[in-house]
């Protein structure tokens, strides 16, 4: 009995140590995909995410009741004003004294400046607007801001990343730091870098946010997922973006 317990402890200890991926080995999920799926993403005319980007372009200059303002009324042309923005989000929000992600910022802008109703996280409109804004950073390196106020939240994100959760008692790190490149069932385990969100996932047959992806993983380890818009997701994203520093933005990416 003691021997069994000891063995169990040893096993826990050996898989409990999550080794961080050295910076030179960090690779986008793109490199783990089949050539066909890669071609689908790379070619603008076959990337289904471009349907949402095109929709976002229309919404960008569409005035919203009651203020009658569009995004373009303040930010002018997104092609000029939004370049590189998505590559440095989440950012610190002065008002709530917390980090805010791009989707949260768009909703905040709608509520405060446009006086419009906020959009739900899986609505086509919010995905389209976010995809359009993030697409302006396509090809740029991820550069999280050097803002010391973000540090405690990033550390919280790291703690969630390394925390074992759910009935399966797996952490994000247990797969995406320790076992990337190996297989889970038929699929290759990628490193889990948020380089192309919102992205088109073939499994979803739809566009989805990073929060939807994180929910999928939480359900996968049989944990209770946070609600959409929960601050934990933003903290995790903050950590993931730091972890993916220097990788190239791909929005809208395609993933299997």
């Amino acid at each position: 009995m003691t021997r069994l317990v000891l063995l169990g402890l040893l096993a826990c200890a050996s898989i409990g140590v999550a080794a961080e991926i050295p910076p030179q080995d960090r690779r986008s999920g793109f490199e783990f995909m089949s050539p066909q799926t890669q071609a689908m993403q790379s070619e603008e005319t076959s990337n289904p995410g471009m349907l949402w980007v095109a929709d976002g372009e229309r919404l960008w200059s569409e005035p919203q009741a009651p203020a009658g303002k569009s995004c373009a009324s303040c930010h002018a042309e997104a092609t000029k004003s939004m370049g590189g923005v998505a590559a440095r989000y989440p950012a610190f929000d002065e008002e709530t004294k917390r980090p805010i992600d791009l989707m949260g910022r768009i909703n905040q802008c709608r509520a405060k400046r446009q006086g419009a109703a906020s959009l739900t996280y899986q609505s086509d409109e919010l995905l389209a607007l976010t995809a359009y804004v993030a697409n302006q950073s396509h090809g740029m390196p991820i550069t999280p801001p050097a803002d010391s106020r973000l540090e405690p939240f990033r550390e919280n994100g790291r703690a969630w990343f390394e925390r074992r959760l759910g009935q399966l008692q797996l952490s994000c790190a247990a797969c995406h730091d320790d076992r990337w490149g190996a297989r889970l069932g038929g699929s290759v385990i990628p490193q889990g870098h948020p380089t192309g969100y919102p992205l088109y996932r073939l499994e979803w047959q739809n566009m989805g946010s990073l929060q939807r992806r994180l929910r999928g993983c939480l359900v996968g380890v049989r944990a209770q997922p946070f609600d959409f818009g929960a601050p934990e997701y933003v903290d995790i994203e903050l950590f993931l973006m730091e972890r993916a520093r220097g990788l190239t933005m791909e929005t809208p990416a395609v993933r299997p």
Binding site: T45, P48, D55, Q205
Partner: peptide, 9 residues
């Protein structure tokens, strides 16, 4: 020629 449409199918 390439054509793509947004549809739930």
């Amino acid at each position: 020629i390439r054509a793509m449409i947004q549809h739930v199918m």
